[in-house]
Write a protein that binds this DNA or RNA. Sequence first.
DNA 1: AAAAATCGGACTATTGTTATCCGAATTAAT
DNA 2: ATTAATTCGGATAACAATAGTCCGATTTTT
Lengths: 134, 134
Amino acid sequence: MLKLSKKIEYGIQALQYMANNSGNVISAKEISEQLNIPYDFLSKTLQILNKNGIIVSQQGIKGGYILARDPKSTTVAEIIKALEENAIIVDCLAEDEENCDRINVCTIKNPMNKLQEKINYLLNNTTIAEFSEV
Amino acid sequence: MLKLSKKIEYGIQALQYMANNSGNVISAKEISEQLNIPYDFLSKTLQILNKNGIIVSQQGIKGGYILARDPKSTTVAEIIKALEENAIIVDCLAEDEENCDRINVCTIKNPMNKLQEKINYLLNNTTIAEFSEV
DNA sequence: AAAAATCGGACTATTGTTATCCGAATTAAT
DNA sequence: ATTAATTCGGATAACAATAGTCCGATTTTT
């Protein structure tokens, strides 16, 4: 399928929204309402992004989130990783690769890895800033 | 997640196997046994590839499959399409895009599309032949 | 006629994704 | 102090997609 999850999609959209309102603390509620994203799901997503250093949270009333870094230096690859997902096109390229039944007869690992590296390059070179320059 | 399905993974591996044995009719059983891929699932996959013109089937005893075209001219993108899947990273870029709740407030469609086109380029420029040159 | 293969449909099991719910902790304003 | 708005964190449910299985029919060579 090669699809990004909603967590990633919502995450990128939320980060873009924050980038466009930089300097202000933005609540999950505001993003949820403005972008029409389910509140609870978005909250979870933002909490993970906070935990992993992409955004900074401020708790309590008047709380919310701001970007932790310059949008120009936050890549899609980093966002995916921060959301505790990955962009690995076949299982055997995963770090915790272990129990593939075909490892002894597999002849696609190397060529798949080449394709993987090209995709990684794209994801490492697309930033939140580019998403904001619509 | 950005992962290829097993259908695609097995399909590519099977096509590569056929490319390496070109000229011979190869049965699903042989591929299944040699590559350690579940027989029934692989059969289904090969039937779809046959239906959509990537391989040619020969029925009956001594039957099997051969590549329909030169491995150099069969791309990963074509295989994905032939397997009736797609490589669309966000729903709103699908052809039958219709009912996105965020269409009026969405500001990621254009930048996502740029990323999509780069991925398409990769998939359109990786062929079965490349998978065989290990 | 028999054997080995594809064909095709239905079905099941498993996993992953998406969404929701609830209560606790935090903090600003009153 | 109390209240209200927020993040935090865990559990769970609903849904969808993937992966795998089963079975009987058809085809074709021997």
